[in-house]
Design a protein around this nucleic acid. Structure first.
Lengths: 150, 150
DNA sequence: TTATTTTGTTTGTACATACAAATTAGTTGA
DNA sequence: TCAACTAATTTGTATGTACAAACAAAATAA
């Protein structure tokens, strides 16, 4: 009897838990919910917070560089900068065909608040997952992303 | 001198690589791109493929159960089933206040194609990441999701 | 110098997804 | 029996994100 007893095609749902696509997106939804909460006080979605921090850290950084560091497409980055510009948190300076992004005074002032939110977020998930797993997972994620993005 | 030399606030971008929110979403974008390719032949986005497979595996499964197994909200699930219903791949049967979902003949026939696409996807990412890392990562992701979803 | 190609950005459009509110249908307690 | 509650689903609306096409500026080739 080579055939296992279970005739029915995938009566259970192991194929979900085995799929990196599914499991990654599942975690993405969970951690995004958590991040939204942690950043609620900043008035900004988490992704925007990280963008501003990059701009504060490197005033005049180009949009191309930003989209690379954030691993999002240039078109998405355009929309992000649009929104932050209408909130007067960053401003663009066009230089030929490239666009350089600078923080405004208001943007710079937001820096500490953003770092705090990040810290809270990290505390929250480390409390649930443990520092061990959190760190290991984060490291694996970065390494995998780098490989897959090629 | 308690203060480290580096005065400038986050000149580098380590804070990105250290953040589980960022790294998870980064991988999510990369693997979703890959999954879209692998499922291109099916005419369906990957998420819909998994939904149909659950329905084939448990005909009459309720929407509530589906949304739990897929870890998506009920409202999202409603839209998914809407779309699959207009494509005549599944059909709803209302039973009181719950909705049961059944595969159509056409939906059942799609099963093998979907499993193939899944297999291709897995082969593709295992080729890049290695089976080792893939498995370990997938396991960590599932375990973390379970904990964070509580 | 002019024509071609490349590069960075933006715009149009589409989709997955969520939350909050509305709806509908059982359930329970007075 | 009916009012209040709870649970499953749907609808309205908003947002992050991508891809493809358009556009604009720079670089290169002729």
């Amino acid at each position: 009897m080579t055939q296992p007893m279970n005739q029915k095609p995938e009566k259970d749902e192991a194929f979900l838990q085995d799929c990196l696509y599914f499991t990654t997106n599942r975690l993405s939804r969970a951690i995004t919910r958590m991040a939204d909460e942690a950043f609620a006080t900043t008035g900004l979605a988490p992704a925007y917070g990280y963008l501003i921090r990059l701009v504060i850290g490197s005033p005049g950084i180009t949009q191309k560089e930003l989209s690379e560091k954030l691993s999002i497409t240039p078109s998405t980055l355009t929309r992000f900068v649009d929104k932050l510009e209408t909130k007067h948190l960053v401003e663009r300076k066009v230089h030929g065909k490239t666009v350089m992004v600078y923080p405004t005074e208001k943007g710079i002032e937001l820096g500490p608040t953003l770092r705090q939110a990040s810290k809270r977020l990290k505390q929250n998930y480390e409390e649930i997952l443990g520092k061990e797993l959190s760190d290991q997972l984060t490291e694996y994620l970065t390494s995998s992303s780098k490989q897959l993005e090629k």
